[in-house]
Design a protein around this nucleic acid. Structure first.
Lengths: 217, 217
DNA sequence: TAAATTTTTTAGTCTAATCTAAATTTGATA
DNA sequence: TATCAAATTTAGATTAGACTAAAAAATTTA
């Protein structure tokens, strides 16, 4: 059984290796976890002893198969709880993260599986991220960034890259959420800002916004 | 904010002072928590510094008002989660304790209050124990032990004193649960065992069993 | 009430997870 | 490729919570 702290590290390593493809550097985990690099080195050694990561001095870590499984079990719980909070407890999608960070550490297979059943086997969480099933398998739809959506081709918002409350609340104010149909009306060459139709309203968004919204074409 | 461990101690002190009426001894907490008396002394000092208990050397502790409140917040969460596990996640009343022990430490007022709303403001948990409301007030019905129920006077099972899985599963096998109507048909003078009618069936139970069942006459 | 027993506390140690500061390695750059 | 900056690791310290063993206080018993 893992400690709360090792679970946090494994999840951070998992997420980092998703975006960075491959091995993960000490500093990048230090930033995510909010710890000093020296503490991260210590933990890398510990996880390495437990065969959850492959670690070579000065070369960063990568998760072993067992490490990936452990990380996915945590991701599964995190996303199921987020779904529950939004669908049954009146949480907004920008409020769930902090609470799910706590709930993801609860140890009970029965709890996780019953929660999944209660939610009717959801495949994606409130931010559009895929939820690993009992076998830890998840299928992510093939998605593109809003910056890549061609002009006048309709797409649907299916997720966000940035999950920060600031960004999510900004989208709420713009009435953009999971499922919102989106059409790019015009792309400004000067600053890559977009005029889009989102649902029934027309609005302007910056490039930075557009590259944090996932679209199913 | 309390650590996980201080929360466990406060809850243990709260429960101990319910049964023992007044101050609580070091050893009694050591037994409940599963720690050595010396560790308990350390924690008593720490809680005393935080003004959560009144502690005098060799005299045990009692909770301050703030200590009671903190304990009741934990009890509230524990019992709400137990209710949720039984009513929506197919847990049996003998299975909920261990998981609720973890869930009771989750920090989020919104979560607790929304859970309470979702469950429609339950007043008692699956073992018949009262759930403190948002203001930390709870009303326990006036109840007697089954050993005190007069012959041929109908009562209803409204709770249990012993919450151990062994006892709860034993009651399940006997088809005794919260709400089961009970009638004492005969009391054996020799060993104080009882012949009772529980629901539709007639059965014999020992004194030890009877003194762990709460009855509303 | 004095002695014996039990309970509680003190003193010192241990472990996990963190930190700071110093040393080492890597990788980029001139 | 030698140097330098950045990243990483090591060494040693700290904190919370627990432990053991010994000392002290309280309680029970004779």
């Amino acid at each position: 059984m893992q400690s709360l702290s090792t679970e946090d590290y494994l999840k951070a390593i998992y997420h980092a290796s998703q975006s960075d493809r491959g091995t993960v550097a000490t500093t990048s985990i230090a930033n995510k976890i909010g710890a000093k690099p020296s503490s991260v080195t210590d933990m890398f050694k510990k996880l390495s002893e437990q065969k959850l990561v492959k670690y070579e001095k000065y070369q960063g870590v990568s998760l072993t198969n067992e490490g990936v499984k452990t990380a996915l079990r945590i991701v599964r719980k995190h996303r199921l709880w987020e779904s529950f909070l939004v669908s049954h407890l009146n949480f907004n999608w920008d409020e769930v993260h902090q609470v799910a960070e706590q709930l993801e550490h609860i140890q009970s297979e029965k709890l996780t599986n019953e929660l999944e059943r209660f939610l009717d086997y959801p495949t994606h969480d409130p931010h559009g991220d895929p939820i690993p099933n009992r076998a830890l398998f998840m299928k992510s739809y093939n998605k593109i960034l809003l910056t890549e959506l061609p002009l006048n081709k309709e797409g649907v918002c299916i997720g966000v890259k940035d999950n920060s409350p600031d960004f999510l609340r900004y989208l709420d104010r713009r009435q953009i959420g999971i499922g919102t149909p989106i059409l790019v009306l015009h792309r400004e060459n000067f600053d890559q800002s977009l005029h889009i139709q989102a649902g029934n309203s027309t609005l302007m968004i910056t490039q930075k916004t557009a590259e944090n919204i996932y679209i199913k074409p």
